[in-house]
Design a protein around this nucleic acid. Structure first.
Lengths: 117, 117
DNA sequence: TCCTTATTTAACCTGCGGGTTAAGAGACCG
DNA sequence: CGGTCTCTTAACCCGCAGGTTAAATAAGGA
């Protein structure tokens, strides 16, 4: 649906939101913890998380008084497929990418450093 | 540069602009011809083309009084690569992922066969 | 129960994105 | 030159995106 693509791309157009996605790539996080490294109010981050949720890029589950944010990478697939319709710029060698993943998989558990973009 | 990603994703967030890109996928076009199928003014389309140009997604070359618009799919590459970091693959060591990308980047352009699915 | 932590809602400000119409600037053609 | 086609600039409108502070809601913990 074209509306979905609108939302996904619009969500990705903000550097704060991309940074949030990168953080969630490492682990699920509570709203407060997501907000911590940013120099804006918690309310603003909460709104960003709302945008990401509306776009389907993350999901939020409330446990107790804490709301956990989880990456939903499937939502990127449609956008990715749309872009690949342009063919010529095929992003990465997929075979090499898979080999890379296999070699990296054992390390998955320990968290990577914060992603300064 | 994160600014570039901002512009690229923001440009892609508009359905009119995506439609324009799809049209240009088939052939280079003059501004007037790009505008023809849309139900908005030529000025509006001209602005959209300006946004796409600023994002590097297209280039415009003036020949005579006609300005030709050409798709520049390379600009999509960075965005596509960024998205590829998420995909269906769960937590990955980001540092290693970036190292991987750097090693792969030089090869990206050549040999990029269309991704038939 | 009272206090604190976690998060959202409400109300608001400001700037920019996307559209309009009208006018201007260039390039071709008779 | 005069007219016409192509495209941009200028001025404007409107709504929404992204931020703020202050207050409300919800869930633990002492």
């Amino acid at each position: 649906m074209t509306k979905d693509l609108d939302q996904v791309f619009a969500a990705l157009a903000d550097p704060t939101r991309r940074a949030i996605l990168a953080m969630l790539l490492e682990d699920d996080m509570a709203v407060t913890d997501v907000a911590e490294p940013f120099e804006m109010s918690l309310v603003a981050i909460s709104k960003h998380l709302g945008v990401l949720t509306a776009a389907g890029l993350i999901s939020q589950e409330k446990r107790g008084r804490v709301k956990w944010c989880k990456l939903e990478p499937d939502a990127l697939r449609d956008a990715s497929i749309w872009m690949q319709g342009f063919g010529q710029f095929e992003p990465v060698n997929l075979e090499a990418f898979e080999r890379f993943l296999e070699s990296e998989l054992p390390d998955v558990v320990e968290g990577a450093a914060p992603h300064a973009e």
